[in-house]
């Protein structure tokens, strides 16, 4: 529980850094391609989080 809280806080912190920049930030440069990069990274992160959680659940089932 505590770990999850810390993780959530870190994510929020990272997001504020990324999105809280002034308008001529890195995210706006090069035709906003880094926005696409952020989207792709988010999707792959979610995919890995999902597979990881399935793996953990299966581990629990196997131990029973």
């Amino acid at each position: 529980m505590f770990n999850k809280l810390i993780l959530a806080m870190c994510c929020t912190f990272a997001l504020t850094i990324v999105y809280g920049q002034p308008t001529e930030s890195v995210m706006e440069s090069n035709g906003k391609i880094y926005v696409v990069m952020a989207v792709v990274v988010t999707i792959v992160l979610a995919l890995f989080g999902y597979v990881y959680s399935i793996d953990k659940k299966l581990n629990k089932l196997e131990k029973e």
Binding site: I33, Y34, V36, M37, V40, V44, F48, D55, K56
Partner: peptide, 25 residues
């Protein structure tokens, strides 16, 4: 924890690297 996890972390690191470097290089 996950079973035999080192190569799973390797997959994660390599794909994160691809998705970031793929746009930057």
């Amino acid at each position: 924890m996950m079973k035999q996890s080192w190569w799973k972390w390797l997959a994660f690191i390599f794909l994160m690297y691809t998705c970031i470097a793929g746009f930057l290089v």
